[in-house]
Every structure is written in structure tokens, then in C-alpha cells.
Design a protein around this nucleic acid. Sequence first.
DNA 1: CCTATCACCTGCAGGC
DNA 2: TGCCTGCAGGTGATAG
Length: 275
Amino acid sequence: MPELPEVETVRRDLKRHVLGKTIQRVGIVYEKIIRNIAPDDFMVALQGQTISDLKRKGKYLLFMLEGAVLVSHLRMEGKYILKKDEPPAKHEHVIFHFTDGSSLRYHDVRKFGTMDLFQTDDLESIYLMPPLNKVGHDPFDDELTPEMLHERFQKISKPIKTTLLDQRIMSGLGNIYADEVCFLAKIHPETSTKKLSLERVAAVLFHAREVLKKAIALGGTTIKSFSSHEISGRFQNELLVHTKENCPNCRERITKIKVGGRGTYFCERCQRMEK
DNA sequence: CCTATCACCTGCAGGC
DNA sequence: TGCCTGCAGGTGATAG
């Protein structure tokens, strides 16, 4: 699921469905999901807690509790499913049983997702600790300016696509949207980050904001669709290069390469290294 | 400090 | 049908 628009979609959906619910018991099927605390302590600390709000920082979901915050990352395929109380289905690794007889299940085929539980609700201090201490500016943060990004980019010799995926600089873009941003800004994904002019950086930031805004409005992107309660986004119909065969501008065949180990789609004619 | 690569898991598609 | 390889929306550890 998760790049910023998908996580934001999940946040809004969860907020409608689990706000105010009280956890009666937590079931843990696969312990390695929980990272910063022993599984037993995780279960005890969550018992009796009521979900008061759902927030997001970068691609992390924050379940706000009473004097505690559960920080959840969906990684590649994590999802939350609300069900009646029933035995765990395949790929359900952590189950929050609520007092009203419903239950929220963390489902993750590849088991890459993570949960960190903080026993304080002081967000500022949580932001200073792993994993949130590595989350950079939200793309929509007004403090994030082209000038500031350009300055930081001067020291980075990696490909721009790789830099866009670095959450410490700007948080929220993932592999799909990074390709879309490079395409919209007409930049070859392997262009050295430090070679981008201020104007090009401004275009990158502008298009990052535009594409994320549009994707959120459409409920995110669903590439692989699963059955059941999957929230299926509609942004996949709007993709311009990622997984595409032909360029929507010039009809040239889309090229697929690897950049930083990630599958990367771009148009050789519309996305140039120079300028 | 910087960059590159692998590791973490499972499932699926395609080639032979 | 079965085996093998490569691939998948992400990030953290480790090695140069």
C-alpha cells in the first residue's frame, strides 16, 4: 500500500471506523512486527487503551492513545482490516480486540511492517526518537522551500530519483510517485541531484505536491488488488509513466531501468539529463 | 560523512 | 506439472 497518499487514505478511513474504540486485548501472531518493546509489554500497555485520534508523519501512522502512541509503518504490503471478532486469518499478525466485539487486524503478506509503542503522548519527544527521528519535512510543509531543497541537493551526488526516496529529506514519496514526479518535472531519474538548478528543484517540489494532492483526493493507488476490505484507490488510472508502455506526451516507448535497485520508468525523449 | 548493496519475507509470473 | 529466476508500493544494517 504505502506511499504518503495511501497512508493518508488509511488514516482517514481508520479514523472513521476505530476512533473511540477501546482495546480489550491484543493478540500477537508474528512478534517481529513489534520493535521497540517486548511483545508481552506491548500487549499489557495497550490493554484498556482508547483510540483518541489518528495522525500521520511521513508514511507512518500514529494511533493516539491515553498517554501512549502506537507508531505503525505498513512498508510494502501492510494493511488494516476491521472485522468481527474471529480467529486470525492468514497473514494477520497483530490483532486488536475491542470491547464492542469488533477487531482491527494488521495484515501483511511479506511481514515487513513495523510497530513501535511509546508510553508517552508527547509527540515532540517521540519525533526525536527512532523511527520518527529520520522522517524529514512533510511535502506540504510551508517551511519546505525550493531554495532550502536546492541547498541540500548541492551535497548529494546520488540520482535524483534516489534522493526523492530518501525520507530524511522530504517524506512521503515512494517508488511510484517518485517516477511520476520525475516525469512531470521532465527530469531523467538518473540525473545527479547536485546538478539540478533551482528552477528544476522548484519544479520537483511543485510536482511532488501536485501529484500527492491529486492522489490523496483519489484515495491513493492500488496496483495489486486484493479482495475483501481492501481500500482500492483510483489514482492508478492517472499514472503517467510508472508501469506504462508509452509516453503520454510523445508516444515514445517508456524505458524501464533500475535506479538504486528500484524499478524505474521514464521517457528518454521527454526526460533529459541536462538543463 | 557519503554511497552502494544486501537483508528482511512471501507470492506470483514467466521461462524452460 | 515443477523448478528456477526475478520481481514487488520500504527501510535498516553493513561494508566500502
